[in-house]
Design a protein around this nucleic acid. Structure first.
Length: 283
DNA sequence: ATGTGTTCCTGTCCGC
DNA sequence: TGCGGACAGGAACACA
């Protein structure tokens, strides 16, 4: 799925067409994604103004004028595409729904927002805005990596004593929000830390170094519009371009690009997920 | 409590 | 071209 940078890219793309605008029609084209949609979802969206579009971890949250918040998760393959946009304006022609277009929202400004998700690991739910933080999908999630609560002391304390490999630990959304397989691989490569190393056995200075690296990698990726491998698209349908910057992810067999390193990127499997790393410069 | 493996679903790619 | 298997930006869940 989209990881934090891809979700933020989608949120930014949706912002101008949704924020401050009213949903005039909601077409719910199947009863569920990963879980059943909430009762009366179409009715609870129709004629409601989107007051604010927020992101928490890999979730997009749309606060509505009704007092509800629409929670959206893109799963592995979810996309949100805008149609009806032309030369900065909207005309009212939209392409016919395609396969896996599951939810279609028409805005009063003429824009159409289509949620497409082939694998249906995505999710949508509605909850009262003042209870959104306590929603079962959100309540256990750790601090935002780009926020102040995520710092060196926090990370050190949370990794202390953990026997899981650092790769696995950083994928744990309870520890830090929004990292996924791509960005954990990229972060560990830049940090020179092996994904196999036990989280609790990494020298404190090296753990501390992870914090600015995580911030840097995520910020650069957001700046680039995320990474487009198979599914991710910006809301305009355009590709992100951070994938051209990968130093580890999906580079099996290719030379390591760390200055002075002569190693090559290997792929291993950890907890069922591919890890890409250089055994020579990542210790 | 932590750690790991399985599962949901569809599409694509690669080797035979 | 067809077929089977591996694999894919996630993460809840069941179980040691």
């Amino acid at each position: 799925m989209p990881e934090l940078p891809e979700v933020e890219t989608v949120r930014r793309g949706l912002e101008p067409v949704m924020s401050g605008h009213v949903i005039v029609n909601a077409d719910i084209r199947r009863p569920d994604l990963r879980w059943p949609f909430p009762e009366h979802m179409a009715g609870r969206l129709t004629d409601k103004r989107v007051e604010r579009l927020r992101r928490r971890s890999k979730y997009i949250l749309a606060d509505l004028s009704s007092g509800d918040t629409l929670i959206i998760h893109l799963g592995m393959s979810g996309r949100m595409l805008i149609s009806g946009q032309m030369l900065g304006q909207f005309h009212h022609e939209h392409p016919a729904p395609e396969k896996h277009d599951h939810v279609v929202l028409d805005m009063e400004n003429g824009a159409r927002v289509t949620f497409n998700d082939a694998r249906r690991f995505g999710a949508m739910d509605l909850i009262a805005t003042d209870q959104a933080d306590a929603h079962w999908l959100l309540s256990g999630i750790g601090p935002e990596p780009l926020g102040n609560a995520f710092d060196e002391d926090y990370l050190l304390a949370r990794l202390k004593g953990r026997n899981a490999p650092i790769k696995t630990a950083l994928l744990d959304q309870r520890l830090v929000a929004g990292l996924g397989n791509i960005y954990v691989c990229e972060v560990l490569h830049r940090a020179g830390i092996s994904p196999k190393r036990k989280a609790g056995e990494i020298a404190a200075v090296r753990v501390r170094s992870l914090v600015p690296i995580i911030r840097q990698v995520l910020s650069e990726a957001i700046e680039a519009g995320g990474s487009s491998l198979r599914d991710h698209r910006q809301t305009s349908g355009e590709l992100g371009y951070f994938q051209h910057t990968f130093r580890a992810y999906d580079r099996e067999g290719k030379p390591c690009q760390t200055t002075g390193c002569t190693g090559q990127i290997r792929r291993i499997v950890q907890s069922g997920r591919s890890s890409f790393y250089c055994a020579q410069c990542q210790r």
